[in-house]
């Protein structure tokens, strides 16, 4: 069970930091989607905190993976942010032990690659919700693997 999304890079759209809005959300099962919305929405606090912390502490600038954002009773929430400040969040069931840091990391990398392709589609307007079939199927295949 997981949810993913890209967040709007607030640097592009507005000076306000609360400009984040979802570009893409997928969850299994889809009936509890609103719950994921809340989970992911609140996790952005941590993402922002971590992103702003990057400036303070000297961290490897090329490290985009933010790691475990926070654990809740039911889920583990992981984050990833591109240098253009697009955020990816993956939520997994906390009982799922097969997914370790490395697996999550590679999932993010795959998402990032696929997202880059979406951005390169001349018919996609940056900032619009993602409706790419290719991206869809990539996410689906990733979700099947992990479940």
């Amino acid at each position: 069970m997981m949810t993913m999304l890209g967040g709007e890079p607030f640097l592009l759209v507005s000076k306000q930091e609360q400009q984040n809005y979802p570009l893409y959300i997928r969850s299994v099962p889809s009936d509890s989607e609103l719950k994921f919305h809340y989970t992911v929405h609140t996790s952005l606090d941590v993402v922002e905190e971590k992103v702003s912390a990057v400036g303070k502490v000297i961290v490897d600038q090329r490290e985009l993976y933010l790691g475990l954002l926070y654990p809740t009773e039911d889920y583990k929430v992981y984050g990833y942010v591109t240098n253009s400040k697009v955020k990816f969040v993956i939520v997994v069931d906390s009982s799922n032990t097969s997914l370790r840091d490395n697996e999550i990391r590679s999932m993010f990398r795959k998402l990032h690659n696929s997202f880059t392709d979406v951005m390169c589609n001349p018919f996609y307007n940056p900032g619009d919700p993602i409706q790419s079939k290719v991206f869809d199927s990539m996410v689906s295949s990733m979700m099947v693997q992990t479940c």
Partner: peptide, 27 residues
């Protein structure tokens, strides 16, 4: 409201892309 980037002034929403998380805002 501020936590969900939601103001109750429609003027804030009339220009540009939608701000914030529509699903939770709607809720």
């Amino acid at each position: 409201l501020p936590g969900y980037s939601l103001s109750l002034d429609p003027k804030d929403f009339c220009k540009g892309t939608h701000r914030g998380w529509a699903a939770v805002q709607m809720r």
